[in-house]
Write a protein that binds this DNA or RNA. Structure first.
Length: 291
DNA sequence: CGCCAGGTGCTGA
DNA sequence: TCAGCACATGGC
C-alpha cells in the first residue's frame, strides 16, 4: 500500500460528477483503471492511499490522472464570478477534472448521448467485459477498456446485443477512424482546443456536446464547456429564463468563464444534479419563476 | 404506463 | 443557419 499527498482534492466529488463511468466503490475503496492496470484508492484527509495490480504504476501517474499538479485554488478563484457558481464551488471544493485516456473518453461519450448515467455505466462495463482484458487486484476482478483496434473489428450487431442501440454503428465507425490512424488521438493532447474539437466533430456520433466532453475530460482542454440538458437548466439563471439555443449557452459561458470554463461547467453540473437527486422535484420552481 | 436521459444526423425551409 | 423529427433502451 502506498500513499500520495493530495491537497485541495475530493476523490468522491471527482469520481461521482459524471466525467468517468468506470470507478466502483467497494468496502471503503474506489476501484478503477489506469490504462491496463487496476487501481484501488481511498482518501484520508489530504492523502491518497492506493495500490495497483501492476507494480510499474507510479504515484506520478496517479498525480497526473487526478490533475493534482494543478493549483486548484487559483482555478476556482478565476471562475468564482457570481453567486450561482460560488455556491457550487463552496459545496464541492476539491472536485477536479480528471485527465482520462482520450480514446476511452471518446468511446464512452459516444455511448453517453441521449442517455442516462446508470445505463451508460452498464453499456461501458459490458463493452469492457466483452472486449477488454481481465485484471485482478486482491478480491477485485475487472476488465480493462477495449482498444480501438479491438472494437473496430466487432460487427455492429454484436455492439447492439450489448445494448448500445443506435449508437452501435457510430462507435464502430469511430473505432475504425482511430484504429486506422485517421483520427490522430495522440497528437490532440498537445493541439489547441479549436483544432481538437474540429477533429472530434469528424467522428460519427460526435456533435458539439460530445466533442466538448471529450476535449475536456480526455484531452485536457479546460476551456471546453459541454452543454447538455442539465447545463441548459443551470444556465437559465444567466439568461433570466429567456429562450436560448445550446450554442448561445455555450458561447456565453465560454466568454464568462474563459480558459477554465470546463471547470465551471463541471461544478455547475455536479451541483444541480446532486440537488435534484437529493431534493424533491422542483419543477414548479423552474417552470414558473420569471413568468 | 409515460417520461426522461451528459444528443446526433438528416431533412427541408 | 435553424427548427423539426427519428432514433434504442432501461430506470423510475
Amino acid at each position: 500500500m502506498r500513499d500520495l499527498p493530495a491537497p485541495d482534492f475530493s476523490l468522491h466529488a471527482s469520481l461521482t460528477s459524471g466525467q468517468t463511468f468506470r470507478w466502483r466503490q467497494h468496502e471503503g475503496w474506489w476501484y478503477g483503471f489506469l490504462g491496463r492496470a487496476a487501481v484501488k484508492i481511498r482518501q484520508e484527509g489530504d492523502r491518497l492511499i492506493w495500490d495497483a495490480s501492476d507494480p510499474s504504476v507510479t504515484g506520478e501517474q496517479l498525480r497526473r490522472y487526478f490533475a493534482l499538479d494543478l493549483h486548484l485554488p487559483d482555478i476556482l478563484s478565476f471562475i468564482d464570478v457570481d453567486m450561482q457558481i460560488h455556491r457550487a464551488i463552496v459545496r464541492y471544493r476539491g472536485l477536479r477534472v480528471l485527465r482520462q485516456d482520450g480514446w476511452e473518453t471518446l468511446a464512452s461519450f459516444i455511448c453517453a448521448s441521449f442517455n442516462n448515467i446508470k445505463r451508460i455505466e452498464g453499456m461501458v462495463e459490458r463493452l469492457c467485459q466483452a472486449y477488454g482484458e481481465p485484471v485482478a487486484l486482491n478480491g477485485f476482478r475487472g476488465f480493462s477498456f477495449p482498444t480501438a483496434d479491438a472494437l473496430a473489428a466487432v460487427p455492429e450487431r454484436r455492439l447492439r446485443s450489448l445494448g448500445l442501440g443506435y449508437r452501435a454503428p457510430y462507435l464502430r465507425a469511430t473505432a475504425r477512424l482511430v484504429a486506422d490512424g485517421r483520427l490522430p488521438a495522440d497528437q490532440l493532447r498537445s493541439a489547441d482546443y479549436e483544432t481538437t474539437k474540429r477533429a472530434l466533430l469528424g467522428c460519427d456520433g460526435v456533435g458539439d456536446k460530445v466533442a466538448d466532453c471529450v476535449a475536456l475530460f480526455g484531452f485536457e482542454k479546460l476551456e471546453a464547456f459541454p452543454v447538455d440538458v442539465w447545463m441548459e437548466r443551470v444556465m437559465r439563471y444567466y439568461f433570466r429564463h429567456r429562450k436560448m439555443t445550446r450554442k448561445a449557452v455555450h458561447d456565453y459561458a465560454t466568454q464568462r468563464f474563459g480558459r477554465y470554463a470546463g471547470y465551471a461547467q463541471q461544478y455547475l453540473y455536479h451541483d444541480i444534479r446532486t440537488l435534484r437527486a437529493t431534493a424533491p422535484p422542483v419543477t414548479a420552481t423552474l417552470s414558473t419563476v420569471g413568468r
